[in-house]
Design a protein around this nucleic acid. Structure first.
Lengths: 136, 136
DNA sequence: CTTGACTCTCGACTTAACTCAAGGGTGTAG
DNA sequence: CTACACCCTTGAGTTAAGTCGAGAGTCAAG
């Protein structure tokens, strides 16, 4: 039974966001409503830090907060099947996304080598052939 | 020598954006400044459509317009080496991104199977164990 | 030579996801 | 008891990437 109640500033620094963001996430229902002390201070459990990291990670991958809310269902009254179905759908979407990323990576790699060859041949003043310059 | 001059509406429908967006991209220098007719209408070549599709594709993968501008260098006066270096850097970033996507996919997949098992066991009223509910 | 569809600019509005400022309470150390 | 670092709410501001409206010009068809 370690000391497991943190205040908002500790949550913020622990998870790499600002206190404003933590409050914002609570308002947006991405985090459960934190209980309060008699003085009105929010009280958090340490796992809130992990929750925020999860949110940030998903966000970094292009999920909107609205979508993340779906992945996270703070409400608790949601039925398990709904969450499960949403997760399955997200998995499919991610597979597509990964595929697209790889394809785009190949596109960029091709641009890179065209660009590189041109540079090797004509030096720094080369007329860059990438994309919009490709249009000859 | 096919007919190769389109007006903004054709570009827009051809690339799946609005005319406002095309003008916006021109203002933001994501597209070269289109020449005008005597009447002031912009004149585009059909490859503008491909250029816009490229932009949209990159954007869909999480690049900001500012980053895409870097990949695209409408200016023409840029040195080839700079573009090449930027491309190389972007390739590295994309590799990281793809790696992260795969890791997150695994996270979601784990959530999915936990969720699914719970559902199989306790039916639709199951207490969903995913993430924020994991904190039993 | 008048429709009607299309285009032009300019400036204001929108949405997402914060971010900040003002004005005021809380809590603990000295 | 008084600093001082925290915390609170409310409401306004910010940035990115469009989106919309007003008012006006262009151009092919009839």
């Amino acid at each position: 039974m370690g000391n497991s109640s943190l205040q908002i500033g500790e949550i913020a620094t622990g998870s790499g966001v600002t206190v404003d963001t933590v409050r914002y996430y609570e308002r947006q229902k991405l985090l459960p409503k934190a209980p309060r002390t008699s003085g009105g201070y929010r009280v958090f459990s340490p796992k809130t830090i992990e929750q925020i990291k999860f949110i940030k990670q998903a966000q970094d991958l292009g999920f909107s907060l609205e979508e993340i809310k779906g992945l996270v269902r703070t409400g608790g009254s949601e039925e398990c099947r709904q969450v499960r179905d949403l997760l399955r759908q997200k998995l499919v979407e991610m597979d597509e996304q990964i595929k697209k990323m790889k394809a785009f990576r190949r596109t960029l790699a091709r641009h890179y080598s065209v660009c590189n060859e041109e540079y090797e041949k004509n030096g720094p003043k080369a007329h860059c052939p990438v994309l919009f310059e490709i249009e000859k």
